[in-house]
Design a protein around this nucleic acid. Sequence first.
DNA 1: CGGGCTGAGTTCGAAAGCTGAACTCAGATG
DNA 2: CATCTGAGTTCAGCTTTCGAACTCAGCCCG
Lengths: 137, 137
Amino acid sequence: MAQTLEIIGERWSLLVLREVFLGVRRFAAIQAATGAPRAVLTRRLETLVAAGVLQRRAYREAGTRARHEYRLTPAGRELQPVLTALMQWGDRHLAWPEGPPLRVTHAGCGAPVRAALRCDAGHVLDDTGRELQAIPR
Amino acid sequence: MAQTLEIIGERWSLLVLREVFLGVRRFAAIQAATGAPRAVLTRRLETLVAAGVLQRRAYREAGTRARHEYRLTPAGRELQPVLTALMQWGDRHLAWPEGPPLRVTHAGCGAPVRAALRCDAGHVLDDTGRELQAIPR
DNA sequence: CGGGCTGAGTTCGAAAGCTGAACTCAGATG
DNA sequence: CATCTGAGTTCAGCTTTCGAACTCAGCCCG
């Protein structure tokens, strides 16, 4: 966990990733969406690329010079449960005057999606970890 | 998500919570386990208590004066999926020479537990969010 | 009684990080 | 040629963090 937080635990990192998940890929757009200062954003993107979470690739819009965009790598996409869990906690425990700002549903069936604890035998545990057993090392 | 990160997104917060989840409740023990500077730890604990994630309560060991310990509130316990998701990502994507440092299993059946995306209709989605649909408010 | 120990802080100066605003640079546009 | 834009970089000021030293209350020991 500590190692993971080294990569994505810095200010802005997870907000940047949220935007990329939502399809915002270009520097200026990420900057506008998150409000992160440009200097910080530059460094965060570098870190995330170096960690293999994002991939920087050139793109070219008709009649402009080449720019970069940032896309999720497979490893980056696997951070989805982290984002979902964070969102879900906020939705539950912070007061939203007009409902949660983003709803996430299963594209297949339309039902809301949540991050659940589930064991490999298929049991779904409750969110509080009461049924968990931790075995160090 | 941004609001949630305001509370638990600062350096050390999640590591502190991990320790409390593991049953480490006293200031000095949390400090030793996380390595956070004491001054910072004091402030983090204050923040977490103010946010209703932890509860500070007095305790007294035989023959010592009263001290405090920090316990999870129900809201705090619901952060378990966040911790699990972070741990799981690290286990998968960072190289562990001798296996992951902590294994978490279902107390009922002994199978490893993971944070999975699951819709309210009961479907389990893959971790990459490919089957997700986001609907902004 | 006096000195030392412990848990939980607080205080300090130095180092690192964040912020907002200004500056750069390359290529496209007019 | 002057201007615009996206993506940075630089800079000065501020905040946060770091690690080490200091405090303080009550207990224990001799």
